[in-house]
């Protein structure tokens, strides 16, 4: 089992009047190679769940086993290495570094990984070309549109072909055509063996995955597979 969280809760301001249970006793297992959507409204706790799954945050209670290993036991430097090599994040807010160009943003995780320059260059150029930004490599984020920034973020996440891809509303800032391209890209990554976890509030988009986990008020309320017919309908329809 790749991802196994047991009775995980995330509570902010615990014990105070302003206490918020972003996640409430959630248990969830995701296997290698799955393509899963976590569906929920804004404030349902889906982003909190992704942050915990992506080792960006630690749960207040409960355990998280990543590939059989308890995440709470993993030392910080190894956790950094997991974020760097195993997980590709696509954040809702792009999270690009303003002072760096598109190329440099894509390159940064590869630098942290210690990859040699030549190899880095090839991967960056290829990855940016795949999202159609080969002509914008030297632009800074402020010189790019929202959709282009999102595509830079996607290129950064996918450049090194990570085994796990987590995407938080990846098409939120894109028009339907560009959104469909991105979805197809994620699905093809899944077809090539990557585990894909997609977070969205859009039920239609959610059906592009093979499994939909619905979350509301910090609890999982349903966990169902998507039928092949439904899935094909979404993927083949132009407006994803």
């Amino acid at each position: 089992m790749l991802i196994d969280i047991r009775r995980v809760s995330k509570i902010y301001n615990e014990g105070k009047e302003s206490e918020v249970r972003a996640l409430d006793d959630v248990s969830l297992r995701i296997d290698y190679g799955e393509c899963t959507t976590i569906l929920g409204h804004s404030g349902s706790g889906k982003s909190t769940l992704m942050n915990i799954l992506g080792c960006l945050d630690i749960p207040t209670y409960g355990d998280y086993y990543l590939a059989g290993e308890a995440v709470s036991e993993i030392p910080p430097s190894k956790l950094s290495s997991i974020r760097n090599r195993q997980i590709g994040f696509i954040f809702q807010g792009f999270n690009l570094i303003p002072g760096l160009t598109a190329y440099e943003n894509v390159e940064l995780p590869l630098i942290y990984r210690g990859m040699p320059r030549g190899e880095r260059h090839d991967l960056c150029v290829q990855s940016l070309a795949e999202v159609g930004l080969e002509k914008r490599m030297d632009h800074r984020p402020t010189e790019l549109s929202g959709g282009q920034q999102q595509r830079v973020a996607i290129a950064r996440a996918l450049a090194a072909k990570p085994p796990i891809i987590m995407a938080d509303e990846p098409t939120g800032n894109l028009d339907s055509k560009a959104g469909a391209d991105i979805m197809k890209k994620l699905i093809s990554m899944n077809d090539n063996g990557s585990t894909v976890i997609l977070i969205t509030h859009d039920l239609h988009l959610a059906k592009a995955a093979k499994r939909i986990i619905t979350i509301s008020d910090g609890k999982i309320i349903s966990d169902e597979p998507v039928s092949e017919d439904e899935r094909r309908a979404v993927l083949e329809g132009d407006a994803v």
């Binding site: 992506g54 960006l56 910080p76 430097s77 950094s80 290495s81 974020r83 760097n84 090599r85 994040f89 954040f91 999270n95 690009l96 570094i97 303003p98 002072g99 940064l108 995780p109 942290y112 990984r113 950064r156």
Partner: peptide, 16 residues
């Protein structure tokens, strides 16, 4: 801080 967060989330170590 945000930039540091981004760097940490894409795999920067404390040392970096």
């Amino acid at each position: 801080t945000r930039e540091i967060g981004i760097r940490l989330s894409i795999g920067a170590k404390r040392k970096d």
